[in-house]
């Protein structure tokens, strides 16, 4: 049994490392495809000699193979290089911005779960009724509304017209409300739809009928016996969505000038700061792979059939 588990663990680890390698290689290739960054750094008035000197300083005069090996070495030794735009170590900048993105993702996912799960359960327990149709429509709306548009509308209403909340930037818990609500919409819809589907399936199981027949209270049947068994796929999607949001918070951070990783990535791309872009991609890939592993471990912990 334990040997099987070890083999399984090693297989997962191998797959994770291959995924990681593919992601970092793609980041390297895309960085090199975007052209020569020295024009942006030095401005158009720089002399060719100046450009050559900077290219040598950045190692861009080396062959691609040498650059790639240096890059991989940097990742292994946690040396993510220095930003071409900000003249600061990339890792320091990522770690500076990470707490803001974590705040946003954490708050967004908390709202998504707090609303999405009850909405999905409500729809599943009242299948075919107008409750179900309304919940499904809301979920569909949540997945269809563009984040950028929603963000601007919320700013206009709650910051400009009503003056209840800040229009953007960061600094206090009030600053977090609008970005977190905007951020929560898509995962909330996803969670609601998945909860509904998973609950509908579970509520048809014989043990639910049995629980009802034993005269248990409806709340207990639905939440303890129903949702307790339907929660595994919901948990999976929550963790995976959180991972996706970590690297996909660009639009929300842009609209609200939220100083997180997404905003930093955008600035890096605009400036062709490819060492910083690479560092953010590598960081995102590592986070996603780790979260995937976490989900697998959670599944194994929850479901004995997977052991």
């Amino acid at each position: 049994m334990s040997r099987v588990l070890v083999r399984k663990g090693l297989r997962h680890l191998g797959a994770a490392l291959i995924t990681l390698w593919l992601a970092v290689t793609m980041a390297f290739a895309l960085g090199r495809l975007s052209g020569d960054p020295t024009s942006n750094i030095l401005g158009p008035m720089a002399t060719p000699e100046q450009r050559d000197a900077l290219q040598a300083q950045l190692g861009l005069d080396q062959s691609l193979v040498v650059q790639y090996l240096d890059y991989l070495k940097g990742i292994v030794t946690l040396d993510f290089g220095t930003s071409l735009q900000f003249y600061q170590p990339n890792l320091d900048m990522i770690l500076d911005r990470l707490p803001f993105t974590l705040q946003l993702v954490g708050a967004g996912m908390a709202i998504a779960v707090a609303i999405g799960v009850p909405l999905g359960v409500l729809a599943a327990t009242r299948e075919g009724t107008w409750w179900d149709r309304t919940a499904s429509a809301l979920a569909l709306l949540g997945q269809s509304v563009p984040v950028f548009w929603l963000g601007m509308m919320l700013i206009l209403l709650f910051a400009v017209r009503l003056g209840w909340l800040p229009a953007g930037q960061s600094g206090s818990w009030q600053h977090l409300v609008l970005p977190a609500v905007t951020m929560s919409l898509y995962p909330m819809a996803h969670v609601a739809r998945l909860t509904r589907a998973s609950m509908s399936e579970v509520l048809r199981e014989p043990y639910i009928d049995s629980a009802r027949a034993r005269g248990l209270r409806v709340r207990s049947v639905v939440w303890r016996h129903g949702f307790g068994n339907a929660s595994a796929p919901v948990l999976t999607i929550v963790v995976l969505q959180a991972g996706a949001l970590l690297s996909g918070a660009v639009a929300v951070e842009y609209v609200y000038s939220w100083p997180g990783l997404g905003q930093l990535a955008l600035q890096a791309i605009q400036f062709r700061d490819f060492p910083l872009v690479q560092a953010i991609v590598v960081f995102g890939a590592i986070t996603f792979v780790v979260l995937n592993q976490l989900v697998d471990m959670l599944h194994v912990a929850i479901d004995p059939r997977l052991r």
Binding site: M152, I155, L156, A159, V160, P166, A167, G168, Q169, Y254, V255, Y256, S257, Q263, L266, Q267
Partner: peptide
């Protein structure tokens, strides 16, 4: 970066 946001602020 977003001009609408600067004005909203």
């Amino acid at each position: 970066t977003e001009a609408g946001q600067r004005l909203a602020l």
